Simulated assay, not measured.
Amino acid sequence: MFSINFNSKFLLALSACVVTATAAAAEFPTRDIRVIVPWPAGGGADAISRKISNIAEQDLSQSIYVENIAGAVTATGLIQMTNARPDGHTVGMLTYDSVITLPRGEMVPGYALDNMKLIARITSEPDAIVVAQQTGIETFEQLIERAKENPGEVRIGVAPKGSGPYLSAIQLEQLLDVDFNVITYAGSSSASSEALLSGELDAAISSLGDFSGIIESGDVRGVIELSSVQNETYPDVPTISSKGFDLQTGSFLVLAAPANTPDDVVATLESTFKAAYDTEEFQSWLAQIGVTADWLGSDGVNDWVDGLQTKMFGLMDDLNL
């Protein structure tokens, strides 16, 4: 008799838990959603995250807000994301450093992609070289000529060692037989932008979208994009393949949640952000800033990340990095 009562109570309790969990998922979101951007405000990742979040919240009963938590090459903010309650109300944006630089170097204890559930890739964009107006350099050829005439003197700004832009600079030196003065900057491309404007740098490597503001102001100009596909937003910036070189590098933006976030909550987040991604407002805005819309949903983003890591880690092995 006791056994029957115990089993009945257990089944009732289990049923209540299932009903409660199902109801919670059906009601998601029950409060504002926090999107952690692990870079300072002002960079390309920050701008894209804010734009798509502002559009996405229009289809929800709650607001979506961006919080910039920089540090440790994106690890500080993303560890906060993975340590948050896995209920979908805290998500984060991953960039190249989050997927390649940190895992490769095992730089920060507690940081691991295994602690995340990847939701979707939103954008991808090739790296490019921009030069400061005050240098007088107007073309890629002039930049390389200046570097060959003045070994180690042309100052080119990149993200920290191991980053995509850093690897681009090293590969360019090898491809072109030049010696740049490569200067690394912790933080987003906004740091390189400030250095270009102040005269601290002659050139910098990141995406054209990251430098769109100072390109439009005329303070810098794009001289080459490390791609084989012409950027329609910047038709005057040639691809490196058009110069006879094969070098394609770049960054991206991936939306992720804590690892144990329920699948149905992830599905809601994915569909909400995909709807925002598909809007004419978001697509036309990306085109204006020269960023490639490149959605890849939860059914493919993990395999894509695995393939990218295999490729980039192999390259780092070859360069002894």
Rank of each mutant, 00 (worst) to 15 (best):
K51S: 08
E149W: 01
N231P: 01
I48S: 01
S61M: 03
N5D: 05
M81P: 03
P235K: 05
A128E: 04
L296D: 03
S98E: 10
A41G: 01
E281M: 01
S189G: 14
Q283Y: 01
D317M: 04
I224K: 11
Y185L: 08
D179S: 15
P160E: 13
A287G: 14
F282A: 02
W304A: 14
G297H: 05
E149C: 01
E225Q: 15
P38S: 08
L269I: 15
G244F: 03
T272M: 08
V154S: 03
M107F: 14
D303S: 15
S8P: 00
M312Y: 14
N150C: 06
Q174R: 15
E173F: 05
G244H: 02
W39E: 12
I240W: 02
I214V: 15
T95P: 02
V301H: 02
S168G: 03
T184Q: 12
N5P: 00
I64V: 11
F245Y: 15
W39Q: 13
T135H: 13
A56C: 09
R34E: 13
P86E: 05
P109R: 13
D317T: 14
L172W: 10
V18R: 07
E173R: 04
V35D: 03
G88M: 05
N320C: 00
R85L: 11
G71T: 11
Q58A: 11
P160L: 09
T310L: 11
V130M: 11
G209L: 06
E216S: 12
I129V: 15
A275V: 03
N231V: 00
S49D: 02
F28L: 07
L286K: 03
V305L: 08
R221H: 10
R221K: 14
D59C: 04
G136Y: 05
G222M: 06
E153V: 06
P40I: 07
G136T: 06
K9Y: 07
L143P: 07
F273H: 07
A128L: 06
A191L: 12
S284H: 05
P235S: 04
L196V: 09
A56I: 09
V229M: 04
P38W: 06
V108T: 11
N150K: 12
S228Q: 13
E149L: 14
A72F: 10
D246H: 11
T261C: 07
E173M: 13
T76N: 13
S49L: 01
N115E: 13
D202Q: 10
A147V: 09
L253A: 10
P235W: 04
D177N: 15
G297E: 08
N231L: 01
E106V: 09
S227N: 09
K148I: 00
R31Y: 07
Q62G: 01
L94N: 15
G307H: 09
R34P: 00
L172N: 04
F10D: 02
A84H: 04
P126H: 11
K117Q: 14
S241E: 14
A13C: 09
L269C: 12
L321A: 05
L118Y: 06
D46V: 05
I119V: 15
V35F: 04
A147R: 02
G92N: 09
